[in-house]
Nucleic acid binder design. Structure first.
Lengths: 236, 236
DNA sequence: GATGATATAGATCTTTTGGTCTATAATGTT
DNA sequence: AACATTATAGACCAAAAGATCTATATCATC
């Protein structure tokens, strides 16, 4: 696959600093393999241009007034045009990096980085990879690990303690699952095609096993102990 | 800071494959800047050696029987000796990478990687950085973003919708807070020094505002709508 | 064939919850 | 002064939830 014969990659730039914008455009145009199909100084304009020109990659500045970069990522992704967003920022703010990556940026580069690295980042992203410079990867993970620290130390301690959820039989798990959706005995009975009293029996057994005395506590126990695994929640 | 005068870095290896263990030991010894202070073929042995020799870095194989690698990371960190764990694995299993990094690995390298890269990884980790090869960074982030996908798309849609929790008065929030701990009317009444009927009134108002009909649903609404923000949960 | 675990279900009773309506005091707003 | 909001609280009632005890039927396993 020789570069010369490849179609030029379509790039769009969004940055409220016009000087910077022009600088990058020059740089990318000089490179020869890129085609800067549009530039915008705010997200709203950018979104319109994206719809119009459907670029492969959008370089999106994170630090803009009003509708900011994070929001921009979400909205670009909402268009579902397969546009890849490469976040661009002046600072290596760990929180910002974390949030940008979390909501779907394909990479994150600093404005202070050498232009060669920017080019490389764009190429990686174009190839479907995710690109984060080593320094930012470090900062990202420090933040990442810190945000999970609490949970980890909790887990260290509770790891040898058995998870009471494991005591539940399959049927009991099904019942609990429905309880975590806020359903009454009658509702559960209907869903599982069993009598209400049977549900009550199951629920009572669940309470015994989880050492709680009511639904709410059972549901909370379930949520806090990985019953609804893969649940992730960090404020954007 | 010239390498020759630096104290050799202390490394410990844990891998159930003895051949591999010896191979790495040779490699690191040849390098000259490392001092392999111990090797172990399982986590239990490894932990003992770590307590004894206090290495700077532990190379820990992820794919071991019985007490596995993830558990190993947790337990090494629990010792709080500042030992840096570099995870080592034969496969680039995204889930495993994610979980290892989440619980505090300082890096993750594949056994198939060139020895130079292993050396580099160890050095980065020794310097307090976090090291993940580009390929694994990509895999990590794909997994990472996927696990947040649901939440992101939810946020896109619900971003303008008002959060019903905002309708609640301060007192109602306090009551809801207690409900999310699984407390009865009587319990809430005692905690807030008000009568049980007052609590009922508040709770009824909360139900109205959140458009639910019982505690469980209210608690679930609260949890799912950022009442307990910064809550993070991914199964280890 | 006895044992144990599981799923099913009925009877009974107490406690808790939830719905509705009314009422008062305090506070702030127009 | 009139009005709205909020926090407080009582009365009453119906529905739901929870606790306890007993009892079958199935299935695996020893």
């Amino acid at each position: 696959m020789r570069r010369e014969f490849k179609k030029k990659s379509r790039i769009l730039l969004i940055d409220d600093n016009y000087e910077h914008l022009s600088g990058i455009r020059e740089l990318l145009n000089l490179e020869g393999t890129f085609d800067v199909v549009g530039i915008a100084t705010n997200v709203t304009m950018g979104l319109n241009l994206i719809k119009k020109y459907q670029p492969d990659v959008v370089l999106l500045d994170m630090n803009m007034p009003e509708r900011d970069g994070l929001q921009g990522i979400l909205e670009i992704n909402k268009l579902e045009l397969g546009t890849k967003v490469l976040a661009l920022s002046g600072y290596d703010d760990a929180d910002l990096i974390f949030r940008a990556m979390k909501i779907g940026a394909k990479g994150y580069v600093l404005k202070t980085m050498a232009s060669a690295q920017l080019i490389y980042a764009i190429e990686e992203v174009l190839n479907g990879k995710i690109y984060l410079p080593n320094a930012l990867t470090s900062r990202f993970f420090e933040y990442f690990q810190k945000s999970f620290q609490e949970e980890n130390s909790k887990q260290e301690n509770s790891m040898d303690e058995e998870n009471l959820l494991n005591e539940l039989t399959q049927r009991e798990e099904e019942v609990l699952e429905l309880l975590t959706q806020g359903i009454t005995y009658k509702g559960v009975a209907n869903k599982l095609f069993i009598s209400e009293t049977t549900v009550k029996t199951h629920v009572n057994n669940i309470f015994q096993k989880l050492q709680v005395n009511d639904r709410t506590q059972a549901v909370l126990y379930a949520i806090n102990n990985g019953f609804l695994t893969k649940r992730v929640k960090i404020a954007v």
